[in-house]
Computed example of a mutant assay.
Amino acid sequence: MRCRLRARFDEWSGEMGLLDRQGVFLPYLHLLGASYDEPPGYSFEERVSAASRDDVLGIGFDADEFDKLLESNSVEDLRGILDQYGVTIGELQILFAWHFGGDYQKMAREREEHMYDLCDLFGIPRIKTVIMTPTELPGPDLLVERFAGVCDRAAARGISVAMEPQSVNPGFDYADTVDMLLAANRPNGGLVVDAWHFFRDPDAFTQIDRLPAASIFNLELRDAAAEPKGSRLDDCLHHNLMPGEGDFDLVRLIRTLDAKGVDIPISAEVLSADLRAHTAAENVARTVDSVAVLMDAARAR
C-alpha cells in the first residue's frame, strides 16, 4: 500500500521545471470546507471524491482529524476510500513544539512519532511543521540541533520535513527559516513557500535566493489584496483570493522559482470564507481552473 501510494509523488522529481508542471496538489486546509478551528465542512469521502480528478495530484491531511476518524473507522476503511477514488495523501500536518525544551520535548516527540506512524499507515511521504511561538525560541544553535533531530528521525522512517514560515505573528521569518535550514543541512528538510506568508514577509525573495533549489519542497499558491483585510490573522485565514485574482505577483514568484531550477508540484491553499460556501467539487473545480490560468500567464510572460 505505502509504495503504491508514494509512486505518484516519486514521479514529481524528474528533470522538468516548474513551468512544465500540470495539475495541482490540495493541502489539508484548502479542502477542509471550514476554518482550521471548526469541524470539517466536507466529509472525508467528499474530499477524496472531489480530488479524484486527473488534474488533482493529491491532497494533504491532518493528524488530529485522522485520530478522530479512526475512532469510528478502521485504517482499512479509510484506505479503501482512497483506493476507490485513486487519491494519494501526500502531506500530513502539523508538527508543533519540537523546538521547545523541558516537558514539551516529551509531548512533541510523542506527537512526532505518532505522525510518522500515520505516514506509514497511509503512505504519506512528508510532514509539515511550523514555529507558531517565535518569542519562546531557544538559541539558534539549539534550534538547529532540534530541527536536525526531527529531520534525522523522519529520514529513518523515509519521510521528509517541510518547514513553513509564518507571517501572521512575525518573529521567525523567511530569513530565520533559511538560516536554520542551511545550518541544519538535512536533505529531507526543506521549505514550504506559502504565497500569503511569502508576500507578507519583508525580504522573502532575497531569502529564497540563498537556498538551493532542492531545499524548496512546496509552493502553495493563494492571492490577496496588497493590504490585509482586517487583522493579519483574519486576512490569512478568511480573506484569500484565488491565485491570480489579487495583488500578489504570483507570476514573478513562479518564474523566479522556475529560473532557480525548482521542480516541485504546484499546490493551492486558498483560505476563504467565500470558498467554504461551495461544495467540495466546486472548490476543486474553481481551484484547478484558477491555477491553470495563472500558470498559462507565467509561461506567456
Score class of each variant (00 low, 15 high):
Gly101Ile: 06
Gly101Cys: 00
Gln105Ile: 10
Gln105Glu: 13
Met107Lys: 08
Met107Glu: 03
Ala108Phe: 01
Ala108Glu: 03
Arg109Phe: 05
Arg109Pro: 00
Arg109Ile: 03
Glu110Asp: 10
Arg111Pro: 02
Arg111Leu: 04
Arg111Ser: 11
Glu113Ile: 13
Glu113Thr: 13
Glu113Lys: 14
Glu113Asp: 15
Glu113Ala: 09
His114Ile: 00
His114Phe: 03
His114Lys: 15
His114Glu: 13
Met115Ile: 01
Tyr116Gly: 00
Tyr116Pro: 05
Tyr116Val: 02
Asp120Leu: 06
Asp120Asn: 02
Leu121Val: 10
Leu121Phe: 07
Leu121Pro: 05
Phe122Met: 07
Gly123Thr: 15
Gly123Trp: 10
Ile124Pro: 09
Pro125Ser: 08
Arg126Ser: 10
Thr129Cys: 15
Val130Leu: 12
Ile131Ser: 07
Met132Pro: 07
Thr133Ala: 12
Thr133Phe: 12
Glu136Phe: 04
Glu136Gln: 15
Pro138Cys: 06
Pro140Lys: 14
Asp141Arg: 14
Leu142Ser: 15
Leu142Phe: 00
Leu142Gln: 14
Leu143Phe: 06
Val144Ile: 14
Val144Met: 02
Val144Tyr: 04
Glu145Met: 11
Glu145Ala: 06
Phe147Ser: 14
Ala148Tyr: 01
Ala148Arg: 06
Gly149Tyr: 06
Gly149Thr: 09
Cys151Gly: 15
Asp152His: 07
Asp152Phe: 00
Asp152Cys: 01
Ala154Pro: 07
Ala155Gly: 14
Arg157Leu: 04
Gly158Ile: 09
Gly158Trp: 06
Ile159His: 03
Ile159Val: 15
Val161Arg: 07
Val161Gln: 03
Val161Leu: 11
Ala162Trp: 08
Met163Pro: 00
Met163Asp: 02
Glu164Arg: 10
Glu164Val: 04
Pro165Thr: 07
Gln166Arg: 15
Gln166Gly: 13
Gln166Lys: 13
Ser167Ala: 12
Ser167Trp: 00
Ser167Asp: 08
Ser167Leu: 10
Val168Cys: 09
Phe172Cys: 10
Phe172Gly: 09
Asp173Leu: 15
Asp173Ile: 11
Ala175Thr: 12
Asp176Ser: 11
Asp176Phe: 08
Asp176Met: 13
Thr177His: 04
Leu182Gln: 13
Leu182Ile: 03
Ala183Glu: 15
Ala184Val: 10
Ala184Asn: 02
Asn185Gln: 05
Asn185Phe: 02
Asn185Thr: 06
Arg186Ala: 14
Arg186Gly: 09
Arg186Leu: 03
Asn188Gly: 01
Asn188Arg: 07
Asn188Ala: 06
Gly190Met: 05
Val193Met: 07
Asp194Lys: 07
Ala195Ser: 10
Ala195Tyr: 06
Trp196Asp: 07
Trp196Arg: 11
Trp196Met: 05
His197Pro: 01
His197Leu: 03
Phe199Gln: 04
Phe199Val: 01
Phe199His: 07
Asp201Gly: 02
Asp201Leu: 00
Asp201Trp: 03
Phe205Ser: 08
Phe205Met: 12
Thr206Phe: 00
Thr206Val: 02
Ile208Asn: 01
